[in-house]
Design a protein around this nucleic acid. Structure first.
Length: 454
DNA sequence: TCTGGGGTCCTAGGACCC
DNA sequence: TCTGGGGTCCTAGGACCC
């Protein structure tokens, strides 16, 4: 073996990556032991395979295949709806086991995490590899499911290591062997390098992770910018990413998308779909005790073109009833008759913690409070009787007048009512339109009241 | 691979201000 | 008609991940 070009010590850092094996399906097999050894898939509620056990994978079932197809491939497969409550609980237990070993733990997703175990050798009187194996064994014993473990000098390397052998794998890469390992890694396997970047790198003659790490850093920066430099260091065993140990308590955005079959041209149908998505998004919003101010809606056509618009309320809300009118206006602007649509989506953003109620000037406090109580009441009922037991009747709220709920971000200081005469007064300056050559959809949709997102 | 759903982060460039 | 520099904030869009 050639000596390492990276001049690394064995363990300048020790990062462990834990990756649950077929996590959702494994959780089901853990909870229902009679499912052990049998092909299991989850995702029944969406009619698409979300996760499959290794037994199901061995029979040729892949992620995102339709359930009916999975059944055809493997008639004896056990099909289950996703039970996120249970998966989350097991995930929490997994991370609490990790925290028994070290407080420096990052929960990257429900089934994946990092632990920084540098400096623990003295405490446990054993090497890093043995500590990492202890973690793996403890999880397996206590949770009755398996994880794959990677140990290396950086997050990027640890993650590649964990992926190297699955399921129940254990891969350790110490400093001296980093370059050797990287010869076996296609550059597209590196976390952060997706299909587009892979294609670009291939055109530049970079195929393995080692090819990449051996280029000058200036080359990486020029081609891929900040991320390019960070990954370059990470692959060479130099930490560019620390562990984010904060627990996730809030979101940047909450979205709901739903594809419907068959596709539809009907305005009313599309609207009903969008409103249902909106309600679901708000339910999640309230579950996380947040409120939203900005709403982005989009429609996807049969040809997979997406077009959408966004607008803000003049204060954040937890009640869909306060957003429906605005959302319908957005929908009207985006919807084109005689076009076949296959999906609607909504994104709630500009989120903040829903602590105390803030009243807008001139707003009726009684009404705001009533709206909040209504929403929480609906949550209670739906909790008891099932999701969407109580839902918005589209005809009802359309008649309701809402005053001053739309903030025009194109002007400062004024909060105009939504009315037809805004057209001329708030026309977008011509210069602004000139800035967007070739973006016909945007120009077509240029309604002054909102910013537009394609 | 003709395509489900829910997220995050980065960047270029415009607006606006001094 | 031509013409400064710099800072901050925001947006739209792209890319990526599970």
């Amino acid at each position: 073996m050639k000596p390492s070009p990276f001049m690394l010590q064995s363990w300048p850092n020790a990062i462990v990556h834990i990756d649950g094996d077929a996590f959702f399906a494994s959780c089901e097999q853990s909870v229902h032991s009679e499912l052990k050894g049998r092909p299991v898939i989850t995702g029944a509620e969406r009619n698409i395979v979300a996760s499959m056990s290794y037994e199901a994978k061995a029979r040729g079932i892949k992620r995102a295949t339709p359930i009916w197809e999975a059944k055809k491939i493997c008639p004896e497969v056990v099909i289950l709806p996703s039970d996120y409550e249970t998966y989350s609980l097991i995930s929490k237990r997994m991370f609490s086991i990790l925290r028994r070993f070290t407080p420096t733990v990052e929960e990257s997703s429900i089934d994946e995490g990092f632990a920084d175990i540098k400096g623990l050798r003295r405490l446990y009187r054993k090497g890093y590899e043995d500590i990492a194996r202890d973690i793996q064994r403890t999880i397996e014993r206590e949770l009755d499911l398996t994880v794959s473990v990677g140990l290396s000098l950086t997050k990027t390397l640890a993650k590649l290591a964990a992926k190297f052998e699955k399921p129940r794998g254990f891969t350790s890469i110490k400093g001296r062997y980093v370059h050797e390992f990287l010869t076996k890694v296609p550059v597209g396997d590196v976390c952060g390098i997706g299909p587009n970047t892979t294609a670009l790198l291939n055109k530049r003659g970079v195929f393995t992770a080692l090819d990449y790490a051996m280029r000058p850093v200036s080359w990486a920066k020029q081609l891929l910018g900040k991320i390019g430099v960070e990954l370059w260091h990470e692959l060479r065993g130099e930490m560019a990413y620390g562990l984010n140990t904060e627990k996730k308590e809030s979101y940047q955005a909450i979205s709901k998308t739903k594809t419907f079959t068959p596709p539809s041209k009907s305005y009313d149908y599309v609207k009903a779909q969008l409103f249902r998505n909106t309600e679901s998004a708000f339910i999640k919003l309230r579950r996380y005790k947040q409120r939203a101010q900005r709403f982005i809606i989009y429609l996807r056509t049969q040809e997979f073109a997406s077009r959408g618009m966004q607008a803000d309320l003049n204060r954040p809300t937890i009640a869909p009833q306060e957003a429906f009118r605005l959302i319908e206006e957005l929908l009207r602007a985006v919807y084109v008759p005689e076009v076949l649509y296959r999906a609607t989506g909504i994104v709630l953003t500009r989120l903040e913690d829903d602590n105390e109620v803030q009243f807008d000037l001139f707003e009726d406090p009684v009404r705001v409070v009533a709206m909040r109580r209504l929403s929480h009441g609906i949550d209670e009922i739906n909790k008891a009787y099932g999701k969407h037991t109580v839902f918005a009747g589209s005809g009802l709220f359309l008649k309701r007048q809402q005053r001053g709920t739309i903030l025009d971000r194109n002007t400062s200081g004024t909060v105009p009512e939504l009315s037809p005469d805004l057209g001329g007064r708030h026309a977008v300056p011509e210069r602004k339109q000139k800035l967007l050559p070739g973006e016909t959809a945007r120009q077509h949709l240029n309604v002054p009241l909102w910013q537009i997102k394609i």
